[in-house]
């Protein structure tokens, strides 16, 4: 009786524990499937023209996505100019000035988390109502600003977290030498947390680099070089979307190539940032 019971329990134990391992392998395996399949297809269609040429008209083979690469870079630049300073300084406020309690810091933390959870497509609508509709045209500005708004919450919270990781004794040490609070923050606390903050920003940037939804109706897309910053502008993610859902085979091939480039960049930045992070002094 007890023997059979313990046999059953042992069997359950072994089966379930093996299952946990199986699922882990499946989950991790899917990364390699994704990478492998994308690399297999993308590499195949990737060539120098992809980086240097404009898209060709339908039916004409060849061409590339040079305009989308430049467009993505432009919009990410705008996004960085918004997301990094606002997120960084807002994070400095929360960690160094705001304190744990108080209504205002609470509201800031609350809305930051709220904004972070807002679906990116909704941010897109918002950017459209503010930046596109009143001006009656799509632009790289609008796309970049939409991405920038998405960057702020994560930049802010990660900055706050890394600054909080700096021990208070650092602050006291600097203040005891006669440094003002501001000098303490900018010459001791922030440098101590710098590696973490930078890697947080890199992860943030990598995340918005792949965002498609907020660009669909802010920057739209384009098959040509956009002059300046105030015209519809192509980006890699939107191109991937448009080409993947199109009925043309050669567009699908371009989508694979673009997907491969985008994923390679995103993962590269992630790996670098996490590598830096693991060697950060504090946290």
């Amino acid at each position: 009786m007890t023997n059979t019971l313990s046999f059953r329990r042992r069997a359950v134990n072994n089966v379930m524990l093996s299952l946990t391992a199986v699922f882990t392998v499946l989950v991790v395996g899917s990364l390699f499937v994704i990478l492998g399949y994308l690399a297999y297809n993308g590499w195949h269609f990737l060539n120098w023209d992809f980086f240097t040429k404009l898209p060709t008209p339908v039916g004409e083979p060849g061409g590339g996505m040079a305009n989308a690469i430049v467009g993505s870079a432009k919009m990410l630049l705008v996004a960085t100019m918004i997301g990094v300073p606002f997120g960084f300084l807002g994070g400095v406020y929360l960690s160094e000035f705001g304190g744990e309690h108080g209504l205002f810091p609470f509201l800031v933390r609350y809305t930051t988390d709220l904004l972070n959870g807002v679906p990116s497509i909704v941010i897109g609508i918002f950017a459209w109502t503010v930046l596109v509709r009143p001006r009656h045209h799509y632009s790289a500005w609008a796309g970049g600003i939409a991405l920038g708004i998405m960057m702020v919450p994560i930049a802010l919270r990660s900055t706050e977290e890394f600054l909080q990781g700096v021990p208070n004794s650092m602050r006291e040490g600097a203040m005891a030498l006669g440094a003002s609070k501001a000098w303490t923050i900018f010459t001791v606390v922030i440098p101590a947390a710098m590696k973490g903050i930078i890697s947080g920003m890199m992860l943030d940037l990598a995340r918005v680099a792949g965002e498609t939804a907020p660009l669909l109706f802010t920057a739209l897309s384009s098959r040509y070089w956009s002059k300046g910053w105030d015209e519809p502008t192509a980006s890699l993610p939107v191109m991937i979307f448009n080409y993947a859902v199109s009925p043309y085979d050669d567009w699908h091939q371009q989508a694979w190539a673009a997907g491969f480039v985008l994923l390679a960049l995103v993962l590269l930045v992630n790996i670098i940032a996490r590598g830096v992070l693991s060697r950060a002094t504090y946290k």
């Binding site: 650092m170 006291e172 040490g173 600097a174 005891a176 030498l177 006669g178 440098p191």
Partner: peptide
């Protein structure tokens, strides 16, 4: 300026994560 006149050494050593030189130079620089 009070804190420049009245220095403090803490219970646990709290050097800044900077070079030895920059640690000592910190007060002079600020």
């Amino acid at each position: 300026s009070l804190r420049r006149r009245v220095g403090m050494v803490f219970q646990r050593p709290n050097p800044f994560p900077k070079s030895i030189f920059d640690n000592v130079a910190y007060g002079a620089r600020i």
